[in-house]
Design a protein around this nucleic acid. Structure first.
Length: 502
RNA sequence: GGCCCCAUCGACUAGUGGUUAGGUCACCACCCUUUCAAGGUGGCAGCACGGGUUCGAAUCCCGUUGGGGUCACCA
């Protein structure tokens, strides 16, 4: 075992989209593997055909790759331990099941679902733990069922499942990498179904076999799996396999501290992508939900490479963490503030092109779609925007004429003297040689001061006619970027449309 | 209910016997300022409780309380 190459896995079932909790589990597996120079593997656990969702596998993998989590081995990539889809490994499970049967660590069970349910209700009524009553445990394994009965049912072709025989009164013990020693009493463990009546294995059976055959060294998964550890450990024991190391991650929580679920907000990674969050922010945020660098570190922003470098299971906490979006919002802004201009420009351009198709605009298209122009918009807006798409949607006046003028702003800033003043100032601007922030500022001050007026008197109305809203970047810089022609046009139109004010 | 896990500001957390219990988000105030942001400064706010152990406990032990997970032919 020592010196062995580290191998970890993320093993989702293809029943829907990628859950943010799943993303974190995958991320920790990935970070740990990469940190240790090992392999990260994706395996698809599709042993429940009834819950199979079309395209889920593809979505899962593409969401992970969006986040920058790329597997070394997976159904699409292949590898030396395949197939990586459990439904393609059925014969393997069948063989190992036979072995358990022969060694009397498992037995056939012909109880019907109705029978089981009846039994459950009865036990519940008696105040007992609902547990399989071992009706079909054969005599030679310490039960009451004669083997002739089992044979008879078999010959009839009756549907059956295979259950593991949990030994009585043994205690099962293991050392969790995050939680330390944990002990279970076998008396509380049910005779878990291993093979279902449709010939598919259950999760417990398939994952133990695959985890062994695929030679994973560390199983990093959610805390919800802790209670089924003894079953898994027993299976390793039956087969005489050395179990891998286990690390059970704390849960991601809702605001009320229950297990993170839909109904109380978005849980799908896709939801956050749609809202406009970047993979850097999501990965950064989710990494910090349960892990921290420790040792007095005050770093909050981590790149994937830094995470790989700094990650360790020892620094993973034990208590659940509330998935609180406020900090995610802040992180997103941090990334927008520091992302290279060229990258943002190339990210937002397709969105802008799309917008331009559906809305009338008057500024020259080659200009407003140029990298130079977009770069200026980004510089002006990057500290005022929450998501990249807001460069287009939140500050649309850089591309489209204002459709309306914020009533509160007009009410506050548009006095009866403004139209004439703006009219006059427009002629000043028109004769302006250079149309730069500096020259505009100079011109405005030179215009206003002799009249005994304050710059603000004109600044606000100018902003309103130019952008339609009361907030935004530095007025002078904004006007410079918009350009003389556009600014003059908007002044005239603004005066016309707002009129004498209220 | 049985079993298992967990417990530091509202949230994420640092802290591994001696600290004025630190940082970040959010919130509040002030500064900067043409607006909105960004930024700066300051502030509010926490060791669930009770017993031990110890000269000394957020830190170690036990218990209580609280929260969560899990008890399927789902994963």
């Amino acid at each position: 075992m020592a010196g062995q190459r580290v191998r970890t896995r993320f093993a989702p079932s293809p029943t829907g989209y990628l859950h943010v909790g799943g993303l974190r589990t995958a991320l920790y597996n990935y970070l740990f593997a990469k940190k240790m120079n090992g392999d990260f593997v994706i395996r698809i656990e599709d042993t429940d055909q009834s819950r199979r969702v079309e395209d889920a596998e593809k979505n899962l993998i593409s969401s992970l790759e969006w986040a920058g989590i790329v597997a070394d081995e997976s159904p699409v990539r292949g590898g030396n331990y395949g197939p990586y889809v459990q439904s393609q490994r059925l014969s393997i499970y069948r063989d190992y099941c036979m072995q358990l049967l022969e060694e009397r660590n498992a037995y056939y069970c012909f109880s019907t679902a109705e029978e089981l349910e009846e039994n459950r209700q009865l036990q519940l009524k008696q105040g007992l733990q609902p547990k399989y009553n071992r009706k079909w445990l054969p005599e030679e394994m310490g039960g009451n069922m004669p083997s002739s009965e089992v044979r008879k049912k078999m010959e009839e072709g009756a549907p059956y499942v295979v259950r593991m025989k949990v030994p009585d009164y043994v205690s099962v013990w293991f050392e969790d990498l995050i939680r330390g020693p944990i002990e279970f009493d076998s008396a509380t463990i049910d005779d878990q179904v291993l093979m279902k009546s449709d010939g598919f294995p259950t999760y417990h059976f398939a994952s133990v076999i695959d985890d062994h055959l695929m030679e994973f060294t560390h199983i990093i998964r959610g805390e919800e799996w802790l209670p089924s550890m003894p079953k898994h450990l027993l299976l390793y024991e039956f087969f005489g396999w050395e179990p891998p190391k286990f690390a059970h991650l704390p849960l991601l929580l809702n605001a009320d501290r229950s297990k993170l679920s839909k109904r109380q907000g978005d849980v799908a990674v896709e939801d956050y992508i749609r809202k406009g969050f970047s993979s850097e922010a999501i990965v950064n945020f989710v990494a910090l939900l349960g892990w921290n660098e420790g040792e007095g570190s005050e770093q909050e922003v981590f790149s994937m490479n830094e995470l790989i470098q700094k990650f360790s299971l020892e620094r993973v906490g034990r208590a659940g963490a509330v998935f609180n979006v406020e900090k995610l919002n802040w992180l997103e802004k941090q990334y927008i503030k520091t992302r290279p201009v060229a990258q943002i420009v190339s990210n937002i351009k397709p969105l802008l092109l799309e917008e331009l198709k559906g809305r009338p605009f008057e500024m020259p298209e080659p200009l407003i779609t140029s990298d130079a122009y977009l770069g200026k918009v980004v510089d002006l807006m990057r500290e005022r925007v929450n998501y990249e798409h807001e460069f287009v949607t939140f500050s649309s006046y850089f591309f489209f004429e204002p459709e309306s003028y914020e009533p509160e702003a007009v009410q506050k800033r548009w006095t009866s003297e403004i139209p004439a003043l703006l009219q006059e100032f427009a002629t000043v601007l028109e004769s302006c040689g250079e149309f730069t922030a500096e020259s505009i500022e100079e011109a405005l001050k030179a215009f206003v001061v002799p009249k005994g007026l304050k710059p603000a008197l004109l600044i606000h109305p100018l902003r309103i006619v130019a952008s339609g809203v009361s907030f935004g970047p530095s007025l002078y810089h904004m006007l410079e970027v918009l350009g003389k022609e556009t600014v003059l046009r908007r002044i005239v139109r603004g005066i016309d449309r707002i009129g004498q004010g209220s």
